[in-house]
């Protein structure tokens, strides 16, 4: 995608009086409207460098802010035991031990990883499918009381999480879903759907109806127009909401623990992680090593979807 998005840098705003812009820019841009792909930034060079530098500085500062506890987790996972709890904090380990990571990865880890992957991918796929269809209907069709339906969708998120546990447990037990994958998947689905419906509905609304109608003139059915026109144009939204559903399902602990209390072979990673805490005194080195490994699949998933998000941007750029 184009380089011109670098104007996001906050720092080059203040120092850049608009007069500096060369007058030739106007001619270039008028033509750029017909060829949106070639939208390189037409900022004069010094400003662009300033803007880019500003972006880098901001990115690094915020990156450090975000990454610090993660780095700390990695370092704690690598530290020899005596250095984990000290009177004065030891940040950099004096020697490196990778044994904890090995220990986490062997053992039952692969079983829990498999459970987590099954539950999480199902939740992501179902959430997007269910929410995209509902979001599209709520965006395009004049349904009576739509406003209240949207709020009703939200109402699931207005209840203290712990209090949902007992009634939900009863529902799942009646349905015979305790200790099964579908039990967890359905519960998670109900928590991840509201936000995704709202977000995707916004995306669908921003896509001109004319595009759908054009497709229908060309012979597509209404649903076909949705699938072939609206969905591809909404890829950034679908990617972002997938990341949200993934992280939610991947991290959820309370329900994963309660639903599968009597079936340890169904435990997901967060539950397994928690059990490191109870075992013969808390082994923080192990917990940190496990937590680091725990976060890796989410990052892989995000980087995988990242390309999709960028593709969506390209499509979005050509539509204007």
């Amino acid at each position: 995608m184009s380089v011109s998005r670098s104007q996001g840098a906050p720092s080059h705003a203040a120092s850049a009086p608009p007069v500096e812009r060369p007058s030739t820019a106007r001619a270039t841009t008028t033509s750029a409207a017909s060829q949106p792909r070639r939208s390189r930034s037409r900022l004069p060079r010094p400003r662009r460098i300033l803007g880019t530098t500003g972006t880098y500085v901001a990115a690094i500062v915020l990156g450090v802010f975000s990454a610090f506890p993660f780095v700390w987790m990695v370092l704690t996972g690598l530290k020899p035991n005596p250095e984990i709890f000290t009177a004065t904090p030891v940040f950099i380990p004096s020697e490196i031990t990778h044994l904890r990571f090995v220990e986490v990865l062997t053992g039952d880890f692969t079983l829990y990883l498999r459970n987590s992957l099954i539950v999480t991918t199902s939740v992501v796929v179902l959430t997007v499918a269910v929410s995209a269809s509902a979001g599209w209907v709520l965006a395009r069709f004049a349904i009576p009381m739509r406003r209240y339906l949207l709020i009703l969708i939200l109402s699931a998120q207005m209840f203290p999480f712990v209090v949902l546990l007992i009634p939900l447990f009863i529902v799942m037990r009646e349905l015979g879903l305790i200790g099964t994958y579908p039990g967890l998947i359905i519960a998670y689905l109900s928590f991840s759907t509201p936000l995704v419906v709202w977000i995707l509905r916004g995306f669908f609304k921003s896509i001109p109806v004319d595009l759908e109608e054009a497709a229908m003139v060309d012979g597509a059915s209404r649903a076909g127009a949705f699938r072939r026109i609206v969905l591809p144009l909404s890829l950034p939204g679908i990617a972002a909401t997938s990341v949200y559903a993934f992280i939610f399902a991947w991290n959820e602990f309370l329900f994963a623990l309660s639903f599968n209390r009597n079936s340890p072979e169904m435990h997901t990673l967060p539950v397994a992680l928690q059990q490191f805490i109870g075992r013969e005194g808390t082994d923080w080195g192990m917990i940190m090593a496990a937590s680091v490994i725990f976060t890796v699949p989410v990052l892989v998933f995000f980087l995988f979807l990242h390309r999709r998000m960028t593709e969506g941007m390209v499509i979005g750029a050509t539509k204007g």
């Binding site: 990156g63 975000s66 993660f70 991290n251 928690q274 976060t295 990242h306």
Partner: peptide, 23 residues
């Protein structure tokens, strides 16, 4: 914003959200 290393930055920015809340 478009800059070299954006992919990594995006992933890094997400890190805090990915770490389990309890941890």
């Amino acid at each position: 914003a478009a800059f070299r290393g954006r992919n990594v930055t995006r992933a890094v920015i997400l890190l805090p959200w990915v770490i389990p809340t309890v941890i």
